[in-house]
């Protein structure tokens, strides 16, 4: 598939839109369907698409292995950090009410950050799993 001109051009056109859609899903999750999981999965799908068209090694240059592995851990840590922030400001664990002077704004802020953490981890894990499976295939050939 690497040399198919049509695919390469269309892929180049499509991927920004997929990413844009992911951002929409991520940040509009409060008002419509969507949220961190779905956004993370969509970003990962864009990455898989990219790797299929341009080859695994090119994809790995765009999003290197070490970065992906750090993403996996960073998302969970971000989530936990929000939890600890709740403790720090005098609430219980994962208490968002205390994150802002106004409890409603605090809730909003907490939800925003944890959704981000979820998206990062989900995206990282899915991309990493794809890399590993694809890599195996190349090793066998």
């Amino acid at each position: 598939m690497k040399n198919d001109m049509v695919l390469r051009v269309i892929g180049k056109l499509l991927i920004p839109f997929i990413l844009l859609f992911a951002l929409y899903v991520q940040f509009h999750g409060d008002y419509g369907p969507g949220g961190g999981f779905q956004a993370g999965a969509i970003v990962a799908a864009a990455m898989v698409f990219y790797a299929m068209i341009y080859g695994l090694s090119t994809a790995r240059r765009v999003l290197p292995d070490a970065l992906v592995e750090s993403m996996i851990a960073a998302g969970v840590l971000l989530y936990l950090a929000v939890g600890f922030a709740g403790l720090h400001f005098g609430g219980n664990f994962l208490d968002y009410f205390v994150l802002d002077a106004d409890p409603v704004a605090g809730q909003h802020r907490g939800i925003f950050w944890i959704e981000l953490g979820v998206a990062i981890t989900v995206c990282g894990v899915l991309v990493k799993i794809f890399y590993l499976f694809a890599q195996r295939g190349q090793d066998q050939e």
Binding site: E69, I72, A73, A74, V76, L77, L80
Partner: peptide, 12 residues
């Protein structure tokens, strides 16, 4: 949470 935090840190 304490053991939970140590896992991603270890990976990082």
């Amino acid at each position: 949470v304490v053991p939970l935090v140590s896992a991603p840190l270890a990976v990082l």
